[in-house]
Design a protein around this nucleic acid. Structure first.
Ligand SMILES: [Mn+2]
Ligand SMILES: [Mn+2]
Ligand SMILES: [Zn+2]
Ligand SMILES: [Zn+2]
Lengths: 149, 149
DNA sequence: TCCAACTTTAGATTTAGTCTAAATAGTGTG
DNA sequence: CACACTATTTAGACTAAATCTAAAGTTGGA
């Protein structure tokens, strides 16, 4: 029944994120339609039934929800594409604070388990990215706010 | 010495990608400055010393280079951000052909090796994305050209 | 009831990337 | 070399994603 409603409200309370009708609608839609939607898709869908929602608010709400951990961003949060001429296999580390991308030495994946997870799909490439705080930033060098050099 | 030059030329020959001054300059810059640069950064840098390079050509060149495997794209090739309300830990599969994003069941990573690769960095989250052809597309359902629903 | 902080809004603006049609630069043939 | 043909580059128009802004609306607490 309105079980979901209660759960969502509980989620807002738990995370301390102020619940507003707009934030609620965005989260509810995302939970209901378990797809990996873009902000635009969410806006179109929610705005259709609830006029009280502007485009900017979808972005605001999504940021707030991600911030509180109720939603997770997938596939590189819409920044500019980046290119790498280092072809030796390696992984990447992206700093939450300064946005810098660093190379990590390669480590193997459990190929057996990976095969299983992939099911019948044909896999061309595996991409591993660790997110966290880089050493510069950890050392208090909290200079650059956003994506750096 | 001009060792690099020879290597790059060899790379063009090997992959069969026609070598043009513009493509050469883009690749050479990327190889020289081993950073994860954006198209704009590359344009600014290369255009400064070589006027014969337009913005569009940087994009063309990068696509051609990625296509030939001489350069690899990092961190989600600049599409719209996507959001996921499924918080249970899981990985993702992105289809090269139709762009759809599918959930994969979780599999553990070799945490020992990962720690080592991460060095001193504090890791908040690990993101694993497999790229390939989804089952729908594999079955010839080659309908939708670009990123789908 | 009143205030201050927070949130939403429409629309302008910025940024990344694509597209277009014309100019330019190879490439192969004779 | 002349020619035709194809591939590439170009400037600038255009589109799409996201952010910013300033004003209006909402909320919780003193
Ligand atoms: Mn790299
Ligand atoms: Mn998912
Ligand atoms: Zn950092
Ligand atoms: Zn597909």
């Amino acid at each position: 029944m309105s079980d979901v409603k209660a759960q969502l409200q509980e989620a807002f309370e738990r995370t301390g994120l102020r619940q507003t009708p707009q934030r609620y609608d965005v989260l509810a839609w995302l939970v209901r339609h378990r797809k990996h939607a873009t902000a635009e898709e969410i806006f179109d869908a929610v705005n259709r039934t609830n006029q009280r929602l502007s485009r900017a608010t979808v972005y605001n709400a999504l940021h707030a929800l991600v911030e509180s951990g109720l939603v997770r961003p997938v596939a590189g949060e819409g920044a500019a594409a980046r290119f790498d001429a280092t072809l030796d296999r390696h992984h990447h580390f992206i700093c939450d604070r300064c946005g810098s991308i660093e190379d990590l030495t390669w480590f193997d994946l459990p190929s057996k388990a990976m095969q299983a997870a992939a099911g019948g799909r044909s896999v061309r490439q595996v991409e591993i990215t660790l997110h966290g705080i880089c050493q510069r930033c950890a050392r208090g060098k909290t200079k650059q706010a956003t994506a750096s050099v």
